[in-house]
Amino acid sequence: MKKNQLIALLVFIVFFASCKNEKAEEEPTPVPPASSMTLKVSYEVDGISLVYDSLMYSNAAGNNYSVYMLQYFLSQISLIKSDSSKVLMKDYHYFDATIASTNQFTIENIPEGGFIGVSFNIGIDPAHNITGALPNNTNNNNMEWPEPMGGGYHFMKFEGHFLNVTGDTLYGFNMHLGKNENLVKVEIYAPVYFNHGNFIYNMTMNLNEWFKNPYTYNFNTDGNYTMADSLAMHKISSNGTDVFTHH
């Protein structure tokens, strides 16, 4: 390298260094990083962790069943302040219980402070429960509730098999929820305090809670298929308010 090039290079380096200095001076003193919250969902059936396609569970009505698929949305995920007002943290999230990466998400930039609980809907809130209102991606599209049936989205697809009443034939069950009147509103009261750093909020869905309290749901008598059966959907959605627990 020739001498004049070397000088040019040196000047360049000096300039670059000064760029950096200047930048630091211009910026205001950084505020301490805000908190974040990672919400993690796990699944169980009355304390037994979820294993797919295995006829090992029994619900309150005594149906012997297995689980094949569990996909659902949470929406309007909010923190509840002590005055009962809610701070919306995330519009919606899609869960597929079989795909680990979908079963947690992180909310950034939570200001320091305390909250008395967490609230959300299982399903999509009415303002977005219109076909095409959610971002266009394969997960959302597969949850579409057909236009000829009113449009919007499936709130949940919970599917599996059960032994019929005579105990000799395996039938499928499809607990599908949709339609605004079946939105499940959940509030979990347990104080959370944010003071920098990441806070992990663990929740468990107990699948058996879908089948009891207030309605003991029996696949043989209440129906093994809920879609387009408004009474069946009403029972399942009413049972849904306490499927989640925080621990």
Partner: peptide
């Protein structure tokens, strides 16, 4: 075996 749950709807 493993019939899809959607195929055994009452209807």
């Amino acid at each position: 075996l493993n019939i899809d749950p959607l195929m055994t709807k009452p209807a």
